[in-house]
């Protein structure tokens, strides 16, 4: 019964941590997804410099583990004269990784828009910007939404990496309670359940959205 006693006792602390994790996820996505769209458009640009820079950023972002980026931003940047709070460092680092990965997902979505529609828009005399804005992006992003939602769930889980830079999110709360009380098994089990409490409904939401979006196809 100690399991349940521990859960009841430490649930409020972990709940606070879960709130921080969710905030970090939200801020990461709000910065990372638009940046991912910009990188996706950049990687498909006609301008060679824009294209090369975008692809470079994407490759570095995907090639570097999120944990390394996180530590670099928090522990590395102060040596370069830039000190960030753990929340800012964590959200910037995760947003960078998110942008790199989601740009590929979004690019896939944009490329899935039938070329015939783009040709028809050209034949109608619409400009390149209008074609992106009205034909390609609305459909491409719609195609990309289900995989993006899947990625958002992974970002939520990846926020646990922020425990390494002393951010009071769910994982670090669980870890510090565990290191004080040595009740690692019960506390980490509870933390795991609380992550699952968010991710499992989120997955079924993403399935539901996928079905809804398939309607006009």
């Amino acid at each position: 019964m100690t399991f349940f006693n521990d859960w009841v006792e430490y649930f409020p602390d972990l709940l606070g941590g879960l709130g921080v994790s969710l905030q970090l996820t939200l801020v990461t996505l709000l910065m990372g997804l638009p940046a991912g769209l910009v990188l996706a458009l950049g990687a498909g640009s006609k301008n060679r410099i824009v294209r090369v820079v975008s692809i470079g950023v994407i490759e570095v972002g995907r090639g570097t583990p999120a944990l390394v980026v996180l530590q670099l931003f928090y522990f590395g940047l102060p040596s370069a004269g830039m000190t960030l709070t753990s929340f800012v460092a964590a959200s910037l680092a995760l947003a960078f990784t998110t942008a790199a990965y989601t740009s590929e997902i979004i690019r896939g979505g944009l490329q899935a828009v039938p070329n015939g529609e783009v040709e028809a828009a050209h034949a109608l005399g619409m400009g390149r910007g209008d074609i992106l804005r009205f034909v390609v992006i609305p459909q491409g992003v719609r195609i990309a939404i289900p995989p993006l939602m899947g990625f958002a769930i992974m970002v939520f889980q990846a926020t646990s990496l922020a425990y390494t830079i002393a951010m009071p999110e769910l994982m670090s709360q669980a870890y510090s309670i565990g290191s004080i009380t040595f009740r690692y098994l019960s506390i980490l089990t509870l933390a795991g359940l609380m992550y699952a409490l968010i991710t499992i409904p989120a997955s079924s939401l993403s399935n539901f959205v996928e079905h809804r979006l398939a309607r006009h196809r």
């Binding site: 039938p114 015939g116 529609e117 040709e119 028809a120 034909v135 459909q139």
Partner: peptide
Amino acid sequence: VFQSFNLFPH
């Protein structure tokens, strides 16, 4: 006008 219509489905 194209063989495959190419209307905007959205």
